[in-house]
């Protein structure tokens, strides 16, 4: 539950208020809505670490892929599919 899962930002929705800034984020093919207000510099195609539906940091692509594979292997990405 405390882990953060890396995903790739596919699109970012227009919002007037930053608090509600969301994007479609792909986690190895599964796409979820993610709040992006805590990573204000993130743009489309960036990789972010996502914890309980909120992106908490940007990370580079290489690391994102390796970390995602590890989490998948240990079953920690299941919570995305149970959505």
């Amino acid at each position: 539950m405390c882990l953060a899962i890396p995903g790739k930002i596919l699109s970012i929705s227009d919002t007037v208020d930053e608090t509600f800034k969301t994007g479609k984020v792909s986690f190895g093919g599964i796409t979820n809505d993610v709040n992006l207000c805590m990573v204000p510099d993130a743009v489309i195609n960036d990789y972010v670490l996502v914890h309980v539906g909120v992106a908490i940091s940007r990370i580079d692509e290489e690391e994102a892929k390796i970390t995602f594979e590890y989490l998948k292997q240990i079953g920690e990405t299941n919570e995305l599919e149970n959505k």
């Binding site: 405390c2 509600f20 207000c37 909120v54 908490i56």
Partner: peptide, 19 residues
């Protein structure tokens, strides 16, 4: 529940509800 990792998301839920 949760540590510092989870607190921002929980805080954000309150801010969103308020707005």
């Amino acid at each position: 529940v949760g540590f510092e990792t989870t607190a921002p998301a929980n805080a954000l839920s309150v801010i969103q509800a308020h707005k």
